[in-house]
Amino acid sequence: MSETRVVPRFALEEAPIERLEAASLPLPLPLPLVPPPAAGAGTLGLAASGAALLVLGLAVLVVGNFVAAQFDRAAWLGWLTLGIATAGFGLIAASIGGELRGLLGLRRVDHLRLALADPARARGAALAWLDTLAEGAALRPALAAAEAPEAIAALLRAGPVAALRAQSDALGRAAALQVFAAAAAVPSPALDGLLVAWRGARLVRQVAALHGLRPGTLGTLALLRRVALAAAGVVATDLALDAATRAVLSNPLLRHVAGEVAGAGVAARRMVVLARVTAAACSPLQ
């Protein structure tokens, strides 16, 4: 970066701000840089695969026989049945493709992390990642001038990663408010749990989508597992959220309601935690 010609300066921003929070202190998610060893298929996995193959394979055979029988009855009837069968199986294949793409998206995060840690590949990987982000173009000149991998990582951290983290926080706060409000309204504790689980899964998908991932059902499950592992590695996750929860519950009315509804505040905190942990799990920089 050619900064020698730039005159040093200091400038005050207009809007007042709160004290800065250390984003990296509570969430240094210890995700491994090396890819985990390929696990062999478990017995349950083998059984599920076999069952899926039987159901799908036998369904194909049955439908094939049925289509052939329809052609025997009348050509137009055969073509119509074939069209319906093709459309049906096509939709199933599309959904399987979507799931696989979602799973591969998670793999791409791991590969990107490895590439960003490699001095020879860091710049190319960073530029490729920027291409997938809406506001990535603004950083390209700075990135092109940066040489050391640490400088590249610092630029990414200061630019898109910070922006993504802020957007994830906003999603987390929105979810926290919804969960809080709903928990106050829902009469049954059992429904509370269901509500939090549903909103949590949706939040994970939202934050993943923000990071350019589009996880399907299996992808979401894999992401949830990854998020759970990441959160488990961080003993202090909850500790970081005092300030975030304070911000969410800064309204006096909400604070009053929080006092009335035991557990709602905890659920709200969990949403903010979940957003941050998911953002860290989806980010190519740790």
Binding site: V6, R9, A154, L155, A158, A162
Partner: peptide, 12 residues
């Protein structure tokens, strides 16, 4: 850390 654009140059 922030990236600040000064005189057309992004600086750390």
């Amino acid at each position: 850390d922030v990236v600040w654009t000064l005189e057309g140059h992004p600086v750390s």
